[in-house]
Amino acid sequence: MQMSPGSRKTLLRQVPTVVWVLLGMILFFARFAPAFFTLKNAVNLLTQGSILMILCMGVIVVKITGGIELSVGAVMTLAGMVMAWALAYAKLPIPVALLLSLIVGGLCGLLNGFFVTKMDIPSFIATLGTQGIAAGISLGMNNGNVIWGLPASIGYLGNGTFLHLPVPMWLSVLAFLCSFTLLNFTPFGVYVYALGGNEQALVLTGKPAWWYKTLVYVYAGLMAGLAAIVITGRNMCAQPTVGLGMEFEAFSAVVLGGSFAAGRGTAIGTVIGVLFILILRNGLNVMGIPTYIQLAIIGPVLIGAIVLSVLVEGGAQK
C-alpha cells in the first residue's frame, strides 16, 4: 500500500465520528458505574441486544435503498405469535414453526415491497400500514393475550449457549454476516447501493430495479422473522405487543451507524449504531437511572450524536 503524506489523517478520518462518541460514553459509564465494565455485563448486553441487532441487519438494507422501514417491530411480533400458535395450538413440529416465522416475516416484507414498488406508495407510509396490519392481527389472534405452552426445547434458541456463548449472540452474528456478505460481495449488494444512489442508473442498465427493491423489503421481513424466533425462545411465550417501538430504535441505530442518506450505510456501521443504543440504555440502567428519565436522556443524546456525525462527516466530504 502506498503511503502519501496525508494518509494518516485520512485513516483517522475514516473512523466514523460516532465511534469516538461511543468510546467516550463507554469511558464515562466505566468511571461512574463500576458494574458496567464487566464481562458479565457485556455478554448480558449483547444477548439482550441481539434482537435489535438482527432487526437492524434487515433495516439497514432497506435504509440504503432510501427506504424507511417502520414495520419490523410489528412484523416480528406477528411472526412470533404465528410461531407460538403453531407450536401451542396446532402442535406443529418445531422446524415447521420456525420456518413459519420466517415465512410470515418474508410475506410482510413482500407486502411492503409491493406497496412501495407497484403502488408507488412512499416506504414511510407503506411500512406504517403494514405495521398496523401486523400489530392488529397479533392482538386479534389470541384476543390480546399472550400465547403460552411452548415446548421446552424452544428455549434453547433464546436462552441456550453454544461454545460457551449465548445462542442469540450467535444468531445476531449470523445476521450480521448475511448482510455484510450481501452488501459487500454480491451483485445484489451493488444494486442495493445503486437503488439509493441513483435508481435511474440501475433502470438504464436494463435490470428490473423494482424487483430488487421488493427483495430488499422481503429481506428485512426475513430478519424480523429470525428476531421473532429469538425473542419467542427467550420469553418462552409470544406477547402481542413485544415489538412495540422497536422500529424506531432500529431506525435510530442505522442512522447513527452512518446511514444518513440514501445510498449510504454499511453493515459494520450498523453494528456500531446498535452498540451505541444498547450501551447507552444499559449504562443508564446500571447507574440506576429510572426508565422514564432514561427516555428523556436517550432522545437528546441520539439527536446530538447524529447531528455531530453529520456535521463532522459532511464537512470532511467537501
Binding site: 447501493y193 441513483n198 442508473a201 445510498g263
Partner: peptide, 20 residues
C-alpha cells in the same frame, strides 16, 4: 450522468453486468 455517486469506478462501469 447515470452514475451511482458513492460507489467506486469499477462497480459503476459494470453496473448490472457484474462479474461473479
Amino acid at each position: 450522468f447515470t452514475l451511482v455517486p458513492y460507489r467506486n469506478v469499477a462497480e459503476n462501469i459494470f453496473l448490472g453486468r457484474e462479474k461473479t
